[in-house]
Design a binder for these strands. Structure first.
Lengths: 233, 233
DNA sequence: CAGTGGTCTAGACCACGGG
DNA sequence: CCGTGGTCTAGACCACTGC
């Protein structure tokens, strides 16, 4: 199903496999119409997805230019699981579960005015290049999915989408810079002088229910993110 | 021209003017087709823009739900000028030019592998609620637009787009957390212990030329950003 | 069942780039 | 001039919601 997504993924994997290098021009709309046997509007939907996510730039009269997407690392403006980011960037990384508690009330600082709910709390640390770098607190809405069976290496997103068939739609993320707390110092083996980049997010399903609240605490001295932004007129 | 943009802006201004509150359902595609006298695909283009930017959530079988967009503050994943952000959030803010130098070579740390160019450097401080909070270093490509006439209150983007007719297309932004430098301490009246949130960006025109490099240095203890992210399948 | 949004089509005209 | 991408149309079928 969904022809435009098939074309999108097909072209994207060619770009990521370097069959198209940065600076090259993709096949024209018309060529893709013939290749895939679809209408032009369907081709253009695929191209717009690629453009929105920073893989190509369309230039009228010329064609669709492949951009340098080597550097898209840890973007905050997309919903990617930690595992997806690790995979895409060929990082060496491990995760370790530090704590798991059921029936916890989600703290105020994560909710930004949304109603309080009970959740299952999962605390994990992410170890990048042998060094503990990120602390993740996931509060998963009990009303939607209680009792998550989690092994150390599992991805929560993968469980939600593949195993449970949930349709994750969007997230609202708040970024701040804060001082290291006791847990940061204790688990990440840093002292209070290291600033933390904190991302608090609220993840929604396609029916607008809140699936989870997450607090991701990154060592500031190790944090790096590359965003792609388009200008809309 | 561009009917879908007209519809987008029309609906957006209604949302921002609270004619549609968060939680309400927008008029259906069919109603908008009749109201604007356009085809359904044109209506849907406008709706997709609204959805992409986090103003609405479309729910199949129900309608287009208006989201709570009160809190979209200082998003890094869109290209907005400082002036646009200030206007949208009703902030009290001033800008002051600190330095202006012609024919400067853009430093390595801003370029991430892009070729070195000569630029006009403009250094400004942004004063929010009476307190100097952000230092901006703009390196504008001399080959594209030399000798920018700048008064203290002017917006660079406004000059590029309105006065010069440039078509800004996209930017790549690098986020890091760094220690305060001499200039940070001097102009922002802080000491070295305050961490800085640094955004370095490369702004491209529609023909893919680089218009400018920018380094924005935010006081970490005052920094706050809200992002909207969609999940693509 | 009627109404909603999601996908897809075949065709048209426009604006821009480059030879 | 021709080929490119950008916009728009009228109509079709599907999947889902809610009554």
């Amino acid at each position: 199903m969904k022809k435009y997504l098939a074309i999108y993924h097909d072209l994207l994997s060619d770009i990521q496999a370097k069959k198209f290098e940065a600076g090259e021009i993709l096949p024209s709309n018309q060529q893709l119409v013939l290749r895939y046997g679809v209408s032009r509007e369907t081709v253009r939907k695929a191209m717009q997805l690629l453009a929105d996510e920073g893989y190509i730039q369309t230039i009228r009269g010329k064609g669709s230019l492949v951009l340098d997407n080597e550097r898209l690392l840890f973007p905050l403006s997309t919903i990617k699981s930690y595992q997806e980011i690790v995979d895409q960037n060929n990082l060496k990384s491990q995760s370790r579960i530090l704590k798991e508690v059921s029936h916890v009330l989600v703290p105020d600082r994560l909710r930004f005015g949304s109603p309080a709910i009970y959740a299952q709390l999962i605390v994990r640390e992410r170890i990048v290049s042998g060094e503990p770098t990120i602390l993740d607190y996931d509060y998963v809405n009990e009303a939607i999915t209680p009792d998550i069976p989690l092994k150390s290496g599992d991805s929560l997103f993968n469980y939600f989408e593949e195993k449970r068939g949930f349709n994750i739609d969007y997230a609202v993320k708040h970024l701040t810079v804060e001082s290291a707390e006791y847990d940061d110092c204790h688990y990440l083996k840093i002292d209070q002088s290291v600033p933390m980049l904190v991302v608090r997010s609220e993840t929604h399903l396609a029916d607008n229910r809140i699936l989870a609240y997450t607090e991701s605490r990154h060592r500031g001295d190790k944090f790096s993110s590359v965003e792609f932004a388009r200008r809309h007129h």
